[in-house]
Design a protein around this nucleic acid. Structure first.
Lengths: 230, 230
DNA sequence: TAGGTGTCGACTGTCGACAGTGAATTCGAA
DNA sequence: TTCGAATTCACTGTCGACAGTCGACACCTA
C-alpha cells in the first residue's frame, strides 16, 4: 500500500470548489450579486475563507468585482470567449509540444483513461468536465508550471461558457461527445509519438476547430435572443 | 482635461506595492521567510490586508507559499526564466499585433514618452522599470484584458531577475540602456505603421534577442557562483 | 551515543465585531 | 407631484483574538 502525502484542504479551498460547482451548474446566475455575508452564512463559515475563495475565483474568471469591490458572477460575452480562444491558441500548442517531449507513461495512461471515461459519459455536462480535464492533464504533463497556472485562469470560463450554451441549445450538442473523443484520440496518438512539432500542430488544429463551435454557438445564442427578447 | 475615475486604494494595495518595492530592490532576499505577523507589525496594519497582498504577490510570482502555507520570497531559477521567456514569446507578439491594429494616438504618445524617459534615465534600475512599463503599455493598449492580466503575472519576475543580475554583474549592463531604446524605437515604429503581422514579427525578434541576455547572464551567474561558493 | 518521545514556540487559518461608504429610500418643501 | 436633502441600510475593509498544527529542541531510554 502506498501512502502518499495527503493535502489537508482549507476551508477556503472547500468554499471555492463549492462556489465553482454552483456557478458552473448555473445555480448562481451570471451578473448576480453575491454578498460575502450571505455566502458565509449559507455555507456556515465566517467571511474570511469566503473572501479568499472569491479572490481565487476572480483569478479563474468565474466572478468579477466592480468598482466598489462587490463581487458578481461573471457574465461571459462573445468577446471574452474570443480572448480566451486566442490565449488557448497561444498556450496549449506550446504545452502540447512539451508534453510530447516529456510526458511519462503514467501521464499517457491517465489521458487514455480520461478518453475512455469521455466515451462512456452519459451527460453533456460530464463530457464538458472531462474535456476540460483532458486539456488540464496535458498542461500539467508539460511540466510548464506557469503555463498550467495560466490555463487554470481559463478553463473554468470555458466550462462555464459551454455549460451555458448547453442549457440554452441542447440540440446543437448532439455530436459533441463522439467528436471530442475522436479529436482527443488523435491528440493522444501524436503526443505518444514524441514528435513535439507534430503535437503543437495537432493541438493548434484542435483548438481552431473548437473555435468553429464558438462562432456557431454564438450565432445560435444571438438567434435565440432575438426570438425571446424583443 | 479628462478626469478619469480614480481608484481609491486599499490598505492591501498599499501593502502590496510596498512589498513589491522591497522585493525588487533586494531588501527582502530570495528564499527568506516572511511571517505575516512580522510584516503586519512592521507596516503598522493588521494581518488581513497583509494576507491579501501576499496572495496577489503570489500571483505575480514574487513570493511562493510552501506546503505549510508559509510565505517565502521567490527564488528565481534559470528554469523559471525559461518558462517566462516561452510565455512572453507566446503572449507578447499576440498583443503587439492587436496593438498595431487598435492603439490610439494617445497610446503611441505614451509609448514615445516612455522611450524618451528611458533615454534620459540615470540608473540601471530605472531603465529596467521603464522597460517593463513599456511592455506593460503595449499589453494594455492591445485591449486584450486577459493577456494583460497574464502579463502582470510575469513582469515583476522579469524585473526581479534583472535586478538581481544587475546587482551581481554590473559590468554586463553597459549597453543595456542604448540597446533598449533602439529596440523600443523600432517596435514603436512598426506599431505605428498599423501592420499587425509586422508588429508580431518585430516583437518576436525583440523577445528572442532578450533571451540571449538571459543565457549570457545565467552564464555569468554560474561563473561567479563557482568563484565564490566552493 | 543513537533513537525515540514529549514539550515549547511560532505561525497560519478562522472567527466575530466594528467602522466607513455608497446607494436606495424616505421625508419635507415648493 | 417633483426636486432636493437627510437618513437608513447593506456591504466591504480592517481589526484583534483564539485554536490547531508543525518543526525545533530538550529529554529520556536502551
Amino acid at each position: 500500500m502506498s501512502l502518499s502525502p495527503l493535502s489537508r484542504p482549507n476551508l477556503a479551498h472547500i468554499v471555492r470548489s463549492r462556489l465553482s460547482e454552483a456557478i458552473l451548474s448555473g445555480e448562481l446566475e451570471p451578473g448576480q450579486h453575491v454578498p460575502e455575508p450571505e455566502l458565509a452564512s449559507r455555507l456556515g463559515v465566517s467571511r474570511a475563507p469566503v473572501r479568499e475563495a472569491l479572490i481565487e475565483l476572480e483569478r479563474q474568471g468565474l466572478v468579477t468585482s466592480d468598482s466598489r469591490g462587490r463581487t458578481h458572477i461573471a457574465r461571459l460575452t462573445l468577446e471574452d470567449m474570443e480572448e480566451i480562444y486566442s490565449l488557448r491558441l497561444a498556450l496549449e500548442p506550446l504545452a502540447a509540444g512539451l508534453t510530447a517531449e516529456r510526458a511519462t507513461t503514467q501521464d499517457f495512461e491517465t489521458l487514455a483513461a480520461n478518453i475512455a471515461a469521455t466515451e462512456q459519459a452519459t451527460s453533456l455536462a460530464e463530457v464538458t468536465r472531462l474535456d476540460a480535464a483532458f486539456h488540464d492533464l496535458i498542461m500539467r504533463a508539460s511540466g510548464h508550471r506557469r503555463a498550467a497556472h495560466f490555463w487554470e485562469g481559463l478553463r473554468y470560463q470555458v466550462e462555464a461558457w459551454l455549460g451555458l450554451m448547453q442549457r440554452r441549445h441542447q440540440a446543437v450538442f448532439h455530436s459533441t461527445q463522439v467528436e471530442t473523443v475522436k479529436a482527443h484520440k488523435r491528440l493522444l496518438k501524436v503526443l505518444r509519438s514524441g514528435d513535439a512539432a507534430a503535437a503543437e500542430e495537432e493541438m493548434k488544429k484542435h483548438i481552431v476547430s473548437w473555435r468553429r463551435w464558438l462562432a456557431m454557438e454564438a450565432d445560435a445564442a444571438a438567434r435565440s435572443d432575438r426570438k425571446t427578447a424583443p
